[in-house]
Structures are given as structure tokens and as C-alpha cells.
């Protein structure tokens, strides 16, 4: 029996140093998110415009997008995982004093 073909979903990596990519459309667990430079298989459903981890991010370390820090991981984040408010916190503004 042939394996079901894996769906590919377009993603954008803004800067080559980013450890997350942004999905251009919504994707489901098992889909491959592909950008100029690679693909990662999603381990969970991720909405359009949201971010997917492409390199392991240890708890407490920096999440990078646009080549700059966008916050700190509050737990370790693995490639293919959804990266959002449940596992990242701001280090600026009120976030700096949280």
C-alpha cells in the first residue's frame, strides 16, 4: 500500500538566522512546512500567519524572527512545533517586568 502523500505548505523565513518560519496558509499535523532553504514536518495543527519552530529552542533562550529577538522560550520548543504565546514571552515593555 502506498503511503499517503504528505501535503506541503508554503512558509516564509524572513532572515536566514531565524529559528522560526511563518506559515502562509493553515497547516495540519503531519504537513510539511517548506520555505526557501528547507522543510519541517508539523507535529501539531498551526493556523495561517502563525509560526513554526525550525531549530530546537531550549527553554529560556531567544526566539529569532526578522534576524532579531522576538522573545524568550518559556519551555523547550522542538522543530515542527507551533511557536506562540503558550511557549514564548516578551522581554520588552511590560514583558520585561513580568
Amino acid at each position: 500500500m502506498r503511503a499517503k502523500e504528505v501535503r506541503r505548505v508554503r512558509a516564509i523565513q524572513v532572515d536566514a538566522s531565524d529559528n522560526v518560519v511563518t506559515l502562509v496558509q493553515a497547516a495540519a499535523a503531519g504537513d510539511m512546512a517548506c520555505w526557501d532553504g528547507g522543510c519541517v514536518q508539523l507535529v501539531e495543527d498551526v493556523p495561517a500567519a502563525h509560526k513554526v519552530c525550525i531549530q530546537a529552542i531550549p527553554a529560556g533562550s531567544v526566539v529569532t524572527k526578522y534576524g532579531s529577538p522576538i522573545g524568550l522560550a518559556t519551555t523547550s520548543i522542538e522543530p515542527g512545533q507551533w511557536v506562540h504565546v503558550h511557549n514564548v514571552r516578551s522581554a520588552r515593555g511590560k514583558g520585561a517586568h513580568a
Binding site: 511563518t22 495561517a48 502563525h50 509560526k51 526566539v63 524572527k65 522573545g71 506562540h84 514564548v88 511590560k94
Partner: peptide, 17 residues
């Protein structure tokens, strides 16, 4: 939160982003 609920639903996670 320091960004709006709509920002968050739209995929923005932090003020830095």
C-alpha cells in the same frame, strides 16, 4: 496582554515581533 487579542489571533506573539 501587551498586544491586542486580534494581533495574537493573527499570529503575533510579542511586542518585539
Amino acid at each position: 496582554s501587551d498586544i491586542t487579542p486580534g494581533n495574537i489571533e493573527g499570529g503575533l506573539t510579542t511586542i518585539e515581533e
